[in-house]
Amino acid sequence: MSLKLHNIGKYFVEDGHHHQVLDSINLEVKNGEFLCLMGPSGCGKSTLLRLIAGLIDASVGGVTDPPARVGFVFQNFALMPWLSVYENIAFGLRMRSLDENEIHQAVTKQIHEVGLAGLQHRRPKELSGGQKQRVGLARALAIDPDVLLLDEPFSALDTYTAAELREDLLRIWQSTGKTIIMVTHLSTEAAELGDRIVVLSTRPGQVVSIIENNLPRPRPTRDAGFFALVDRLDQLIRPTGRH
């Protein structure tokens, strides 16, 4: 079932002033699609993601058929520091009151899926950035989400770790067929991962362009087609490139 964003607008009220963040967002996300959301800083990408997740409500419009189970991967991991790796991954399952066997099976599967074997008893404080984001990914996948939302998941990581995690995410997406919506500020990341790339304007964020990424997978990240797409995205995101 596809996810439809219908005429979404969002504004915040601060000190009596209305600040419009999103304006007239219409978008359909296909089932099993990898969609990337891009746009200049402050254009409302993360707000839109939180809106899809149901964390905040739209001021205007809304999400048609909102997903029942949403997995969310946060930019700064957002792990529970007092819980072990195992318990962090199990968090969403425990909230659903699953029995211990089911929880154990699901958590063990994810621990192996994202490469955290042997680290399950550690606390977040004892992990590297890449390991923490793997926990974040495993926690999101453990609940078997209808949609996986990722908010700049690799931006807090070094280049090599980010590349490794991108590969893992692609592998997981291809094997599970989950619908993924990922916010990124990197054109190269969007070009490498996305089936479609939605570019938002500066605040209030409006859809400027939706680009079909027809480059074959695995994506040739060093060829002319790839760089042409990256250039096109950069042009769209730069304020002057919108005209």
Binding site: G54, F72, Q75, A78, L79, M80, F91, G92, R139
Partner: peptide
Amino acid sequence: DQSEAATLFG
């Protein structure tokens, strides 16, 4: 974000 994560995961 931690508070959001808690809410989002149930």
